[in-house]
Write a protein that binds this DNA or RNA. Structure first.
Length: 259
DNA sequence: TTGCATGTTCCGGA
DNA sequence: GTCCGGAACATGCA
């Protein structure tokens, strides 16, 4: 689930249910997901305070509490679940934030993400490590400059969080399909008009999926044929190919996406 | 049983 | 420094 659009949806979810609510306690159901803190330290930092307005940076969700910041990363299988009535946690629920009026649960099946505690604003960057500009905030000229001189394949280039942050496997496939660019094409081989097209496709895909709070799977989206037996290109009807690009499974249409 | 999965990091090698 | 592939992390599903 969690790429830029999904995390944006989770940011709104946290904002809607948790912001302004007093934190009465924190239950750590699985210590594995705590990365820079302990159950005790997390509880001490949060208890008695309220969640502030959350922010998203790339695939990170930042939830300020008092002078600290809780950083949530969702890996490939993470999410949040709010419940106003106490109920049995799911197997994948790892941390429960007990708030006034309900519970917010951080869940993650594969535990690839985690929960960090920054004791100050300044610690946040150390935890996230170097990140390129958020893909939603990147301007055209900046985008062109980022790709300048990159000889890597375009798909892993787009997914490089140090270069530009927020794009993952599904979004990059969707964007490249929309821009009609072969995912294995070298970034440095794209001419100016093609980079323009790529930027426009990125804006368009992000704008629409962010509005829905997740990547769309509706008609006219490549993402809609992900995981089906014999995927057909929503644009030309041709066979969609699956191949390894940059170590990930890329879905793409050889008829539409040429070098 | 095997391979695969929306992410990130570390390592060795070219 | 750049780029690549592979492995690792932990878990569930087809």
């Amino acid at each position: 689930m969690p790429e830029l659009a999904d995390v944006e949806g989770l940011r709104r979810y946290l904002s809607r249910y948790a912001t302004g609510r007093r934190i009465e306690g924190v239950s750590v159901l699985d210590r594995d997901v705590l990365r820079s803190t302990t159950p005790q330290a997390l509880g001490r930092a949060l208890k008695g305070h309220a969640f502030g307005t959350p922010e998203r940076v790339g695939k990170w969700l930042l939830a300020p509490v008092d002078s600290s910041v809780v950083l949530l990363h969702f890996g490939m299988t993470g999410g949040l679940a709010w419940t106003s009535k106490p109920s049995q946690p799911e197997d994948s629920d790892r941390v429960t934030f007990h708030l006034k009026g309900g519970e917010l649960r951080y869940r993650s099946q594969r535990k690839l993400g985690g929960v960090w505690l920054a004791k100050s604003r300044g610690e946040v960057d150390e935890i996230t490590g170097p990140l390129g500009p958020d893909a939603l905030e990147t301007g055209w000229a900046q985008f062109r400059d980022l790709l300048q001189g990159r000889r890597r394949q375009i798909k892993p280039t787009l997914m490089d969080q140090k270069l530009i942050s927020g794009l993952g496997n599904e979004l990059s496939d969707e964007i490249l399909w929309r821009a009609a660019i072969d995912p294995a094409q070298r970034a440095s081989e794209l001419d100016e008009a093609t980079v323009d097209r790529l930027y426009d496709a990125m804006r368009d895909v992000l704008r629409r999926s962010v509005r829905h709070g997740r990547i769309l799977r509706s008609q006219g989206w490549l993402n809609a044929v992900r995981g089906v037996r014999e995927p057909a290109c929503p644009r030309c009807g041709g066979d969609v190919r699956r191949s390894r690009v940059g170590g990930r499974t890329a879905y793409w249409c050889p008829r539409c996406q040429k070098k």
